[in-house]
């Protein structure tokens, strides 16, 4: 009986670990889809997130709203949507376009309410 009581707690714990993994023992990140980040930008503002997306450089989808931070602002997309990064995001907008990348970023919002990401680290998915 005790085992069956324990199991739901194990499930909840496991889910929490997947959604907010601990990296290097001390940092928590949320895996997020771009669409969800944009939808919940206000709640996520200031939070660190982990995103897996395709780097589009400056070839951003129509409807992908630029935050207007720099003249280098590049964008990334996944199946749920497109979002801009502050600056180039540490990649080359010409050469690295089309690469699938994994990056850690902080969710930010401009005074006009445009959601974007400030990249802290980026790795190519191979």
């Amino acid at each position: 009986m005790k085992k069956f009581v324990f199991l739901p707690f194990l499930a909840i714990f496991s889910f929490s670990c997947v959604a907010t993994p601990t990296i290097n023992g001390s940092v928590n990140l949320r895996y997020e889809q771009i669409g969800d980040i944009i939808k919940h930008c206000s709640e996520l503002e200031g939070e660190r997130v982990a995103v897996r997306a395709v780097y589009e450089g400056w070839h951003c989808m129509e409807g992908c709203v630029p935050p207007g931070i720099t003249r280098c602002d590049a964008c990334v997309k996944d199946s749920s949507g497109c979002i801009y990064l502050k600056g180039t995001g540490g990649l080359d907008p010409v050469m690295d376009r089309g690469k699938e990348v994994f990056f850690r970023a902080v969710v930010k919002k401009t005074p006009k309410g445009v959601c974007y990401l400030e990249v802290q680290s980026v790795d190519e998915v191979r």
Partner: peptide, 27 residues
Amino acid sequence: NHGDAWRGVSHPDKFRAAAEDVTDDDY
């Protein structure tokens, strides 16, 4: 425009660029 200073690539399709034109997909 956008600027990309100097940049080379492992597959020779894109290089350092001074301007980008999306409609014509050209740099």
